[in-house]
């Protein structure tokens, strides 16, 4: 009799996870409904964010485009910056050095790097990276804000390197040893093995790893909030062709940073719009995670047959 209860409890625990997920999506959806109704497509396509307009009535202008732009630009830029570093760290740990002092040093450093809290990255970025970027901007004649999309991307890149490196390393591990040994026995150099055997085999897994890192970057909040400059509009330089290169140095805000900054002071449609932003964020990260996991599973399976 007790056994039955216990088994029921085990199954129930699995079901609770489902209820939790369903509850999260449902809660966000229901809380976002007022804003979906009031704003319609102007939420997704509007370029102005003016919470004041909620109180003045009539024309509510809450457009999420500046934050979509901020999120997309920071996460892609940071991914781009992090790729060479994540890739070489993974190669070094997975292929070149599998033991020894340097291996242990690099491995524990990367682990430490992933353990540092986001808020401390933000604080450090604010005190160290911002002045460096500002000095660079003064030299190149760009308005010297210091804070901005570029600074946020740099800090984000440092934060996601450990994550993508560890996934890439996992994927590299899935490459069958026989394949590598076959290539070595034909006299291939290590570089040739990496280029012609490991990389083609692990390509889809590696892109999945990068996708997962992108998902991580999309949702990152505190560090970005502290160094991105918190400007609720699109960069002015985006509209003129001559100044478009300045765009990545201009201040902005991301979807998660605007939630962090305004949630506590919001109510009514404004609050609902912020929750809709959260819903959008969780939908995008969930889809990205799904695709990434499926690709990694595929690499895993092809290694087993």
């Amino acid at each position: 009799m007790n056994d039955r209860i216990f088994r029921a409890m085990l199954y129930a625990s699995g079901a609770i996870i489902f209820v939790l997920i369903a509850g999260i999506f449902l809660t966000l959806f229901i809380s976002a409904l007022p804003s979906v109704k009031a704003l319609g497509h102007s939420f997704l396509f509007g370029t102005r964010w003016n919470p004041q307009s909620v109180w003045e009535g009539e024309n509510i202008t809450l457009g999420a485009v500046p934050f979509l732009f901020g999120t997309i630009s920071t996460s892609f830029l940071s991914l781009l910056i992090s790729i060479p570093f994540a890739f070489s760290t993974a190669l070094l740990l997975g292929e070149y050095m599998k033991k020894g002092f340097f291996f242990a040093f690099l491995k524990s450093s990367v682990e430490l790097l992933s353990g540092i809290p986001s808020v401390i990255y933000g604080f450090w970025g604010f005190s160290v990276v911002v002045p460096i970027v500002r000095a660079f901007e003064i030299k190149t004649g760009i308005p010297p804000y210091g804070v901005g999309i570029m600074t946020a991307s740099l800090v984000l890149a440092i934060m996601i390197i450990p994550y993508s490196a560890s996934i890439i390393r996992e994927v590299l591990h899935l490459v069958p040893t026989e394949l590598k040994e076959a290539a070595y026995s034909l006299g291939a150099t290590r570089y040739e093995v990496i280029k012609n055997v490991i990389f083609p085999y692990a390509r889809s897994g590696i892109s999945a790893g990068l996708l997962l890192a992108l998902g991580r970057a999309l949702g990152e909040t505190m560090a970005v909030t502290m160094v991105i400059g918190n400007l609720n509009s699109l960069p002015a330089s985006l509209t003129s062709l001559h100044e478009i290169h300045k765009t990545i140095f201009s201040p902005g805000n991301t979807m998660s940073s605007i939630i962090a900054l305004e949630f506590n002071e919001s109510s009514g449609i404004h609050l609902s719009a912020l929750i809709q932003m959260g819903l959008l964020l969780i939908l995008v990260t969930t889809i990205i995670n799904f695709i990434g996991r499926i690709y990694i599973k595929k690499t895993d399976k092809s290694g087993k047959d």
Partner: peptide, 26 residues
């Protein structure tokens, strides 16, 4: 069921931390 639970656990792991704040608030 365990296949699906595993998937949901992955989804849960990917949820951005700020969204957890919204959920607990609501």
């Amino acid at each position: 069921l365990s296949f699906w639970v595993r998937l949901w656990v992955e989804v849960l792991q990917g949820v951005p931390s700020i969204v957890m704040g919204i959920i607990a608030y609501v």
